[in-house]
Each structure stands twice: as C-alpha cells, then as structure tokens.
Design a protein around this nucleic acid. Structure first.
Lengths: 164, 164
DNA sequence: TATTGTTATACTCTATAACTATA
DNA sequence: TATAGTTATAGAGTATAACAATA
C-alpha cells in the first residue's frame, strides 16, 4: 500500500470546515474560551464567576434570600451555601436572619463587597475588550443585540432585562 | 429592623443586568446552553461531541494520525485514545498501522462512519435551527460572520478555514 | 533525544438526592 | 405537607504527568 495515503498533512491543525458552518459550534467554542478568560481574570480577586454573579445580584436587589440568588445566578440552591460562605469569610457579604421567616437567610452586600464588585467590573471590561478586539463599535453593538435576542428567546430571565 | 428590608422580590428570577452588558457573558451562557443541546441531540447516535468532531475531521482529511486528530478537534492527545476506541468498536472508524512510521496509527473513516456523520449533521442542523429561531436569514449570516471573525482572531486554526 | 500512542490521576464544574429546621 | 438552607455524593469534562515503543 502506498505510503502517501498515510501521510499526515503538515498543515493539519485546522478545525473541520463543516463544524465551522454551525453558529452553534462557534458559540460553544467562543463561549468556553470566554468563560476561561473571565475565570482567569477574576482569579486576581480570588473569586470565581458565580461569586461575581452573586455580588452583582446583591448590588442590584439589596437583601436577597439564598433561593433567589440561586435562581438569578442560574445555579442550584445547594451550591449557594459554599459560595456565600466564601463571600462572608472574605467580608464581601453578610447573612442576616430574616425575622419574618426564621428559615430564611437574607444576604447583603458589604461596603468591601461593593468595592470588590467594582474591581470585578474593571477586570470583565478588560476581558471583553480583548475578546471583541477584531470588531468595531457598530459591530459590537450588533453582536450584543443578536446574542441578547437569542438568550431572551430561550430563557425568560433574560427577557425581562432585555426589554429595557 | 423593618421586615420589608428582607422581603424577597417575587419577580427575582432575573439575571443581574450588569452581567447582561457583557457580550462575553452572553457568549459563555449561550455557548454552554448550545453545547448542552448539541450533546443531547448527538446522544441519539450514542456519540459525544468529540466523536462528531473526529468523524468530521476524518471525512475531510482522510487517514489522519491521532496527534493530528487531537490538534484538529482541540483536545489533548491522551483523550483521543478512548474516543477512537469507541468509534472503532462501533464500526465507524478503523486504526491502521502506518508502514512508514510504526509508531503512528492512521485512523480512517468506514462507510458506516460516513453514514453516522451524515446523521450527526442532520441532528446538528435541527439544534441550530431551534437555537437561532428568533433571527431571520440575514441576521443569522451576520451573527455567523461576526463569530467567525472573533474565533479566527484568537485561534489560527479557525483563520485558515475562515478565509475561504 | 524527540515523538506517537497510551495509561493513570486529579481537579473543576455540574447534577442529584437526602437531611434539618422552620413554616 | 411544603419550603429554606444544608450536606454529601456521583458524574462529565478537562488538565497533567508519566510510561513504552519507535524514530
């Protein structure tokens, strides 16, 4: 059998062309890469993505029960415990007993938590800029609008905010 | 302390607005959801995403060494072993010894593998249509072009194909 | 010495069930 | 009986190191 059949293309480091036809494939790939970059950036604050999400939710809604945190951040309630534990130990959030329902722990943002959130925003902005570097301003707005419409179509939690 | 402070917003199931400002956040969220849907669809064929990637690469490049498969699909070489094992057991791919280099195993697509790839394409097309449902044809092209440019900017493996 | 394929291990993220204390 | 919080466990995906055979 001819050896030529087994030669490996020296320029073989290419993604299969038929996968690139799917926007879904590009979304999944870029989404993973983006998540990786955000995670890496937040590591400078000693925080994970979900910590950032919780800080953001607390800043916008004030005292929130852990169940509401889970829904807003899109994770299971069983994970919120460790996440809030970490924020509390770092002095970024506090748990308070809700006098109206002793089962409930209202979580609040501390002043230090607010400052940490601001720093997270700066880190996220840097990642965003690097990610969208090849696009001009109009294209970035176009991309954002398209992504937001898709997200809102598949998840009601995005729709309410998207309408504004 | 006033109980009102602790009341949970009945409409709290909303994503933090400041996170939605980041296209990167939307990319990560949509990317994860898309991956989940693709994975679920491919399960009908008993395959995972990486199996699909390998089948696609084999169809486009013919006999390929496992190292080249790893680069093309974007995974570590140590994972290729089990993936190709599964494809071989399912009769979708074959390993042949490369007479030119006895270390190398050239992987080829079988006729059944080609048929399985075609079915995967159908499944992927269905997922893609559902995902992009809220966009019209022109918007889908626009989104795809933007995503491809971002991907090509950050990964040379996408650039070569994107130029076509 | 470098490369191909292989095996093994660990770590993160995610999903799920089960338990307690309150309502 | 249902809910809020908690604990524990298991799985998939990913990353890494180490090894044998061959170049």
């Amino acid at each position: 059998m001819a050896t030529i059949l087994f030669l490996v293309d020296p320029c073989a480091a290419q993604v299969p062309a038929r996968l690139l036809r799917w926007s879904g494939f590009l979304l999944a790939r870029l989404g993973f890469e983006t998540k990786r970059r955000f995670t890496e950036a937040l590591d400078h604050e000693g925080l994970r993505l979900h910590h950032y999400g919780i800080l953001a939710l607390l800043a916008e809604r004030g005292p929130v029960a852990q169940t509401a945190l889970a829904e807003g951040v899109g994770i299971d309630g069983s994970h919120v415990v460790a996440l809030v534990d970490a924020l509390e130990e770092a002095g970024l959030a506090e748990r308070r007993a809700d006098p109206a329902d002793r089962r409930r722990h209202a979580v609040t943002l501390t002043r230090a938590g607010r400052a940490a959130l601001d720093r997270c925003e700066q880190l996220a902005a840097t990642v965003e800029a690097e990610l969208l570097a090849p696009l001009d301003e109009a294209e970035r707005r176009e991309l954002h609008e398209l992504l937001l419409r898709i997200a809102a179509h598949h998840d009601a939690r995005f729709a309410a905010v998207a309408e504004r």
